[in-house]
Nucleic acid binder design. Sequence first.
DNA 1: CTCCGAATAT
DNA 2: AATATTCGGA
Length: 434
Amino acid sequence: MAGIDKKDNQFPKGMHVLAVDDDRTCLVVLKAALQKCHYQVTTTNSAITALQLLREKKNKFDLVISDVHMPDMDGFKLLELVGLEMDLPVIMLSMNDDPRVMMKGIMHGARFYLTKPVKIEELKNIWQHVIRRNKLDPKNTGKAINNHENPDSGGGSGNELTTGGASDQSSKPSRKRKEQDEDEDHDNGNDNDSGEDPSAQKKPRVVWSLELHLKFVAAVEQLGIDKAVPEKILDLMNVEKLTRENVASHLQKYRLYLRTVNTITNQQHSNIGSSFSSGDTSSYLRMSPLTGIGQLQTLNNSGYGLRSFSPSNMIGRLNTPSGLHAHGFNYNDNQFQFPSSGLLGGAGGNNGQIFLYGRGLNSVQNFSTKFDPKQSFGRENHHHHQGGIYDNNPNSVGSSLPKNKSHSHLYLIIIIIIIVIVATKICGQMNATI
DNA sequence: CTCCGAATAT
DNA sequence: AATATTCGGA
């Protein structure tokens, strides 16, 4: 890039600006103003020409200032193309000061949004938008709009989420961390733009899909719950870009969940349950890892009966993708949810865990809804990195779409029936013991 | 100095 | 609510 040295605090007088506006008057004014600010200016009244210029001499320009409304090409389009093809900062310009339009520009990657008439004071400072280093993939400059991309798409990245082998432990001593790249401003204490910087990178959050969770649980199981510490779990899981912190966080929650669940079961198993659930209060550690799964198992199997009472094989079976696919669920990009083990969990039956979702029916419904593969909206995010750890579904959080009620209801009903049957059995047992 | 885990923040 | 980040302590 032309005359800019970001290390020195030197004012970038030589900065080369390409100004694009179909309105000649505006263009002339803009050019004059820019020149007054000691920028080097090239003008054009056509976005297409601008694009050509940019393509020809990618390195000649440092900054593009473009009007939004132009006959040959929408300013947004230009913005997008520039973002896609080269890594140049773009400042949008229009008379429209509608915040929504401005937001649109910013969200499409504009570094700043100016409104006409442009004040020269504003132009004086635009150089700052160039300085910000942008070492991330050029591709996300363009449309940061509805994709969460993971920070480095660099090498391999084939995290084997889709593979069922949760118990596989190709012991990899090296820890892999997801490097996060905060782009940081440096030594220019000048901050005049009150707006947000669009290039601010959102760091992706890990989404604990069912699959991830299963890996997690498997790892915990393998280690033994009391030996399961984040780092070891992380190793066993062997999932790229997952950090120890991620695991730690999840582990924290997991433990909390287990404790809750166990408290509940212990409360009610006064004399019934002694036969199973390792009664020992201090060792909620033993039965618990399974509880988390048990319910899922039940859900997944909903239609297929609940003979799956043996905790040990629950994991085994659940781990295989086929098991999960049984209903055609696309579990892959869905968030796993700890069943809400609300107050009225059932009296722990043969393996208490299944009953814990007394109130969890809600979550059940949620579950099936979310997991329905035919999900009406045609999600267009099958491209890039299947099996990612992160959430690439814009709709994912926040909206529990009531689609496909019938399905949900079906599952709900089935589950209720199962519960009733089991409850009956238990009552039978109770009576027998008494 | 590294890791864990509870507390706290987003 | 789910995940991230912080922070005191081993």
